[in-house]
């Protein structure tokens, strides 16, 4: 991919991270770790890959995006705001009474949200149904958490997607390796994740899920195999982008204190400035 195009996506992802911090500022807390580990992928989907119309969010032929791990929704809100689905002032209502952007997404509150996720292990089944109903018309993209893989319902959905040859369905597993109580592999091990999906009949690939270059590269090659759904194991870093928080389970849910938020904002804005300078 052309360097400038990539850099523009990278700076957009950082702006989306800044939007997330704005939401945290509004509510005083939020599921930061997962939002920041997957936000590069969400940015690439909305700004590079998906067939969507921000001015017509319920356009029938649109591609669908679901966060099966609904607690990462600040990432989706941030990207939808950056893409123009709603006014950024709405970000300041996060965590407030009657907000359109609650702690887990609600499709009836905000156009652009496709499913009411939050309870884990639901998104992939819903995505299967969407992919089945939209076959030949639109694509469906899902982000799942790695800890979420322990929900058995995912594997029902994984079998059904392969059985019905849903090659318009792509799943990113946000493999940051950490869930609320610690290391995913110690809590309930699904590693090697790719081999699990492969055994169910999926086409699989591993990428660095925080590398825009690798994300774009794999998006350009979808479906990886005709007639098979695609599972991309995205190796990511929890809370990616905030140096002091990266790769620590305690930032799964973050209530910033002692100047942490300001530090995060400064780091994020510095990065936006730095990448912007690199764009020629």
């Amino acid at each position: 991919m052309e360097r400038n195009k990539r850099l523009k996506l990278e700076v957009t992802a950082e702006k989306c991270r800044r939007n997330v911090l704005r939401m945290v500022e509004s509510s005083g807390h939020g599921h930061l770790g997962g939002a920041f580990s997957c936000i590069d992928i969400v940015t690439a989907l909305y700004f590079y890959k998906m067939k969507i119309r921000p001015e017509e969010p319920d356009w029938k032929e649109r591609d669908r995006f679901l966060l099966s791990a609904g607690h990462k929704c600040m990432a989706q809100y941030a990207v939808l705001a950056e893409k123009g689905f709603f006014d950024k002032s709405v970000l300041d209502t996060y965590g407030k009474l009657g907000t359109k952007i609650p702690g887990h997404p609600d499709m009836h509150k905000l156009l652009g949200i496709e499913a009411n996720t939050g309870a884990l292990g639901h998104g992939l089944s819903i995505a299967d149904g969407m992919a089945l109903g939209l076959r030949g018309k639109a694509k469906v993209y899902v982000i799942m958490g790695d800890g979420e893989l322990a929900e058995g319902s995912n594997w029902e959905a994984a079998a059904a997607a392969a059985h019905y040859h849903l090659d318009n369905l792509t799943v990113f597993v946000d493999f940051n390796g950490l869930q609320i109580s610690g290391q995913v592999e110690k809590i309930m091990n699904y590693v090697p994740i790719d081999e699990h999906f492969k055994a169910f009949g999926w086409a699989v690939e591993n990428i660095d899920g925080n590398s825009m270059e690798e994300i774009i590269d794999v998006l350009d090659r979808l479906p990886l195999q005709k007639g098979r759904p695609t599972a991309i194991v995205a190796h990511t870093i929890k809370a990616k982008g905030i140096t002091f928080a990266e790769n620590q389970a305690k930032y799964h849910f973050w209530s910033p204190k002692n100047g942490e938020l300001q530090q995060a904002i400064e780091e994020c804005e510095a990065k936006i400035g730095k990448i912007a300078q690199e764009i020629m």
Binding site: L124, S125, I126, D128, G129, M130, E156, A157, A159, A160
Partner: peptide, 17 residues
């Protein structure tokens, strides 16, 4: 797979089925 089917049904319904 009753759990899976119930979710799949929801997804199909979002497409007008």
């Amino acid at each position: 797979m009753e759990q899976g089917i119930t979710g799949i049904a929801a997804g199909l319904a979002t497409t007008g089925k």
